[in-house]
Each structure stands twice: as structure tokens, then as C-alpha cells.
Write a protein that binds this DNA or RNA. Sequence first.
DNA 1: CGCCAATCCTTGAATATTCAATATTCTCAA
DNA 2: TTGAGAATATTGAATATTCAAGGATTGGCG
Lengths: 169, 169
Amino acid sequence: MHIDAAQIASHSLIWTNTKSDAVAKPPKENSPITEHLAYLLAQANREINRQLELRLSKEGVPVEQWRILKVLSDGNGHSMGELADAVLLNHPTLTKMIDRMVSDTLVYRVQDPKDRRKVLMFISDRGKALCRRLNSLAVSQEEHIVESYGDKSTNELKRLLESLIGSAN
Amino acid sequence: MHIDAAQIASHSLIWTNTKSDAVAKPPKENSPITEHLAYLLAQANREINRQLELRLSKEGVPVEQWRILKVLSDGNGHSMGELADAVLLNHPTLTKMIDRMVSDTLVYRVQDPKDRRKVLMFISDRGKALCRRLNSLAVSQEEHIVESYGDKSTNELKRLLESLIGSAN
DNA sequence: CGCCAATCCTTGAATATTCAATATTCTCAA
DNA sequence: TTGAGAATATTGAATATTCAAGGATTGGCG
């Protein structure tokens, strides 16, 4: 939405976006931000995450807690560092979130007997029960995405994302 | 329950990269979290964003400020609401970030004469100069991604992300 | 052994974000 | 015309995250 045409003055180069191009080119320095992979990822993530957040709010649980419960629901003990990587949280943030979950008796800490620097996290029965309800909500969200976005696109997108993550390390 | 730390140390939790699988299936309720689209998006976004952040830190500027400068660099006035949507920030967060950028004289506010509830944001010359340097850093990052990830994958991923965003609204 | 560096987690202070409430301006219908 | 309600941006308090530092434990090496 352009309000004041007088402000446009000093820009010398004008770029017309040739829609006819079949394939998106790598962005030039003056390309709109919407052509940057980093932006598209952030935008898609924001939207999908918001939808998921909305569903999970039925149980009053943030997305990160669902991730934690899901990782722990294999029944094994997971150290804080391992868990932080898995659930995409920095260590101090995870520590404080775990504090909350411990006082909600969703998870509990055990000192690792093999390496006493470590703390192993376990899921409680209450945590398991909550995790089941959350899984159901999350799956229904993904089904909803597949409905409007298509099965093929969804699978292809997942495949490409996995591959991107793999190539980025 | 007793803890066998040897189990934990030995298996890789996060990236079980099953390249051989032909097609990812929609996640069941007990699927690992790595099969959820929402998680893959968050993971990819986190990684790419961190890389970009690292590059932009050369200029001491957070990613969001680059987005703001880039959107404003069309030379037109953009209202706060419009801008907030474009740069993926909530309104109060944007207001406070703009406050900082104004005191750095990167952008400036003008009350919209057509609708005095609105504030139009403009980029300053200093902001333009910074934006050019940032664009160069951002483009070089994307080139780096294309190098290791491939031209075809990158373009296909972008296409799918655009389509996902479109279908989610 | 004994020491020093590295690893792991947590803490506290600084910083940033979000939620709810506010102020201002606009819209529109009575 | 005017008043109620919607739209826009900002503010302040509550909350959350991050950064830097610390305490505890381990591993390795002289």
C-alpha cells in the first residue's frame, strides 16, 4: 500500500518481477524478501506453529512441552543436553521449562549414575497420559494440513526439509 | 525403574536419517517427532536462521531488522501493522524494535496524513546503506546453501513453501 | 596420583517478548 | 451531527529468553 508517491524519488533502478519465469532464481540483492529461503521458512514455520499452538492450547500446553513429552515418551532417560538439541531449545530455557514440568509432575529428574554431571529426564504416568492427548491433537493438525495442501506436496516437502537439515550440518 | 545409561549414549536421537525410505508417511500418534511437518519446519528454520544470524552479526544487526530494512527499502511508507505482518513480528515487539532503529537513525516515523491513526515508516539513507551491506551478506548465505543443497532442491523447496503458505490462509 | 581443562547443568542479571489496557482517530449509522 | 464501536499504535506489567558466570564432575596427561 503506497501512501505518498513523493517519497519514492531517489531510487534509480526499478525491477519488474517477471512472473513468466518457470523457476525461482537465487535472490539478487534487490529481490523482495519473500524470495529468500530463510524468510519462506520463517513464514511457514510461524504459520504452522501458530496452528499447532492453537490446537495444543486446548490442553494448556506450549508446543515445546509437547516436544519434550514426545521425546521422553520412549521411556528412556535423556540428558538435558540431548533433550535441548532434540526439542530445539537452548539449555537455560530448557532447564526452566523442565522446572515447571517437574512441579506439574509431568516429568522427573534422576541423576545419571554413570556420569554424575548429567541429569536424566523421565516422563511420568501423568506425562504419558497428557502426551497421548497431545499427540492426538497434533496428528489431527497434520491431517488438516494434508487435506488442504495435499498428500504429495506434504511428503515431498518433508523429504526436502530433512534433506536440507542433513546438508546443513 | 533403573537407568541404563549405555542405551542412551549409543543411539542418535535427533537425526535418524533414513535415506532409503521412499516416502514419508503421515505421522501416527506414536511416530517420532521428527516425522511431523511442524517439527521439521521448526528445525530447518532454526538452523537456517542461525546461519543467517551469524552472517548478519558482522554488522551487529538482528535478522528482524534486516527484514524491516528490506521491506522499507522500496522507498514507500509502510504502516506499523503492515510492517508487522511482513516481517513476522507482533505489534508491540515491532514498536519496540522500531524505537531502537529510530534512535539509530536507520528509519523514521511519519504520521499518515490520510489516516492519522497510522504511522508510516520510512527508511533513511543510513538505513539504505546498511541494508545494501546486509543484502550482500544474506545473498552470500543463500548461495552457500545452494552450494551444498543444490539448485534444484532449493528452488523446489521454495516453491513448496510458498504453496504451503498459500494453502494455509 | 594430582592437576587442569573440558563437559554438563543450573543460576542470576540483563534483555526481549507478550498480554492486557490505553489513547487516538476513523467509520458509519441513527 | 453525533455517538458507539472498530481500527491503529503504543505503553507498562508480567512473563520468557538469553548471556555470562558459576559449581560440580569427569577425563586425560604429566
